[in-house]
Amino acid sequence: MPSFLSLTSLEDVAEMLWAEGPTCALVAGGTDLLVRAPRPERTLWLDISRCAELAGIGLDAQGRLRVGALACHQEVVEHPLVRRHARLLGLACASVGSLQIRNRGTLGGNLGNASPAADTLPALVCLGASVRLVARQGAREVPVSELYTGPGQTVLRPDELIESVRVPLRRGRAAACFKKAGQRKGMCCSKASVALDARVRPGLRLVDVRVAMGAVAPTVLGVPAAEALLEGQRLSPRLIAQAAEACVAAARPIDDLRSSAGYRRAVVGALLSEGLLEILERLRRAERRAEGLRRARRARGRGRR
């Protein structure tokens, strides 16, 4: 049986990891750890759930969104800063597990567990987020897109832990979607997932388009080909189909009990299509509304003359 140690300061945790890193398994929400025991050499379960420095959601010195590693998924979903400036992250967090899991599982845990199917990863990659890693020797930042080297594998050294996630704020009108295909409607791991984030420009156009996929490759996968197709172009069902094709072409999925490679490949395209079709519908509705307002204003103007 592993031993269990609970520490309340980040400094002490860093110290312990410096000394014992390879034998430690970090415990925060425990939603991964308690259902699948860590490798046997991890004999010390180090509880970090009471480290205040790892908690909270707010703005950092550079004006970026800081989500502490201990923030649970539901906290992220409900936070006003996330709703305003990182809606995509909220959408992804809302699709995780069940309310009970979202209330326990932490964002830091979802990142550190490094499952290829983790739902927050495609969203964070789209948002250009970085992870702040802390060690006794000092801190460093790594973009989420460069954090992973394989399933369950990260660039974290044994003496490092995830302190927080930093997300550049999105300003202006955003279009975002997160879609996942699971084995059922709730309490499920993704068979495949797609996230998209972009700014909206007049004429049904998207710019700064970012697309990323989960569960279709050993690590989270950005899809530059789809981004390039969509960037600055007028959205149309045809363009959407082409972007979906680009996702299908980029996917490198595997067969497992949860799904088949063939389905995963097909469904990432379908998920992006559905997300973009819904975005297109919303943009069209907004344009019609704006057009109606303009017309009404013109009519009023004529009346005054």
Binding site: R184, K185, M187
Partner: peptide, 11 residues
Amino acid sequence: FNTYVLPTSLD
């Protein structure tokens, strides 16, 4: 029940 997938109330 991670691999033997049952419907939940949402299904």
